[in-house]
């Protein structure tokens, strides 16, 4: 069961955007911004409050790649897999990240809840390819070596 504070927070977001069907996406965005994921119970709660069926809310949430029902790590790393990054060996960046953090296509978040690795279709910074972001900070012209350094540094900061 989710802590009471989550529902209070959701109530705030609902109040901000209005008890209306069309508020669904803005509310989901706020929840995601707050908790870095959408707790499923909270989505059901919001849906009921604003008069959307649970199935419809789930439909919207699963349509957009950006919404996640899984809890994310402290550092969310997004690796660009757009055309420009792809041809400049973006895949190697991803592979190195997976190797460093022990992650895979099926496992996106480390057990200590520090890192989440995702791919995105384009970050809009093709001139800096291959590119990745760590919590929205852009890391341009990446190489596998630079990936290892970045991860090492982040781990040191945490220790």
């Amino acid at each position: 069961m989710l802590d009471r504070s989550y529902f209070d927070k959701a109530d705030e977001f609902i109040a901000d955007h209005g008890k209306d069907k069309k508020s669904l996406i803005p509310i989901m965005q706020d929840i995601q911004a707050q908790y870095r994921y959408i707790p499923p119970e909270l989505l059901s709660y919001v849906a009921k409050k604003i008069g959307v069926t649970e199935a419809k809310a789930y439909s919207v949430a699963t349509f957009y790649e950006n919404f996640s029902f899984d809890q994310k790590g402290k550092y969310v790393i997004k690796v660009c897999d757009g055309t420009a990054c792809h041809v400049r060996k973006g895949t190697l960046i991803l592979e190195r990240l997976y190797k460093e953090l022990g992650l895979s296509d099926g496992k996106k978040t480390t057990d200590d809840m520090l890192f989440t690795v995702e791919t995105v279709s384009c970050l809009g910074a093709c001139g800096l390819a291959p590119v990745m972001t760590v919590n929205d900070v852009v890391h341009p012209s990446m190489t596998p070596e630079k990936v290892s350094e970045t991860i090492k540094k982040l781990k040191e900061d945490e220790a």
């Binding site: 649970e54 199935a55 419809k56 789930y58 439909s59 349509f63």
Partner: peptide, 8 residues
């Protein structure tokens, strides 16, 4: 509305 489209 017990069912709806899910995923993409």
């Amino acid at each position: 509305g017990a069912i709806d489209f899910a995923h993409r």
